[in-house]
């Protein structure tokens, strides 16, 4: 899932300072699971901003709402009225949610309330860790199911670098060396022969380095005729 973190409240308050009417919109998907922008987090942020405004003697109308998935236009329609009647919308979703609102209402201001961090998994309650960078060409079938691109600081593809020591990464001694983990996993799977295979230099054009990526599935796309019919229903 996408893991994000709330921006510091003073930074949010500074962004919103010039505006009288603020709509805060959260998301019940990934950012709710990582406790950054779900229903409770929206309510707490709204309340904290109100307390701050009270302290600063500032009058500002702040209302909070939550949608099921902020990266999908259909769900944003639910709060369209509230978004448009405000001076600014603070998105408590990942950047995708904020940008979807921005794309739907280009003349309306939409600001981010979260810093979108990574593709991660919950390791334990309250802890999320990065496991994928979305490089666009997955190779974990050759690395025991562990991604060296995301988990190695240098994204090494053919074993650890010279800085790996006592199974720890030289970048941060708290972090396990990804290649030590890959070795262990391949050993468990009885596939250590894979460690000897040389992986050629990676083609990064499938990653963000190749520019903005757009994936299309032709069979799922609507034809102009279908689009017209759907618009008619709406």
């Amino acid at each position: 899932m996408i893991v994000a973190k709330r921006k510091p409240i003073n930074e949010i308050a500074e962004m919103l300072a010039p505006y009288k009417k603020v709509t805060v919109v959260g998301c019940r998907s990934c950012v709710a699971i990582c406790l950054a922008g779900g229903e409770k987090e929206v309510k707490m942020l709204v309340s904290a901003l109100k307390v701050k405004n009270k302290k600063d003697g500032k009058k500002q109308q702040i209302e909070g709402f939550v949608v099921e998935r902020q990266c999908e236009k259909e769900w944003i329609k639910e709060v369209e009225e509230k978004v448009l009647e405000s001076d600014v919308t603070l998105s408590m979703a990942c950047s995708l949610g904020a940008q979807t609102i921005g794309d739907m209402y280009p003349s309306h201001l939409t600001f981010p309330g979260l810093n979108t961090g990574m593709f991660g998994v919950p390791e334990e309650q309250g802890v999320w860790s990065e496991k994928c960078v979305g490089c666009g060409n997955c190779i974990i079938h050759t690395t025991g199911g562990i991604c060296p691109i995301a988990r190695c600081a240098k994204s090494m593809l053919n074993g650890p670098c010279g800085g790996s020591s006592n199974r720890k990464c030289e970048v941060n001694l708290e972090v396990d060396c990804a290649w030590a983990a890959i070795y262990d996993r391949l050993k468990i799977q009885n596939r250590l022969d894979l460690i000897d295979k040389v992986t050629p230099a990676k083609d990064w054009s499938t990653s963000h380095s190749g520019g903005r990526r757009v994936y299309v599935r032709e069979d799922a796309k609507l034809t102009p005729h279908q689009k017209k019919g759907r618009e008619g229903v709406q």
Binding site: I9, N10, A13, M44, A48, V51
Partner: peptide, 8 residues
């Protein structure tokens, strides 16, 4: 922590 961030 939230109050500190907000300057309260």
């Amino acid at each position: 922590q939230m109050l500190s961030e907000a300057g309260i």
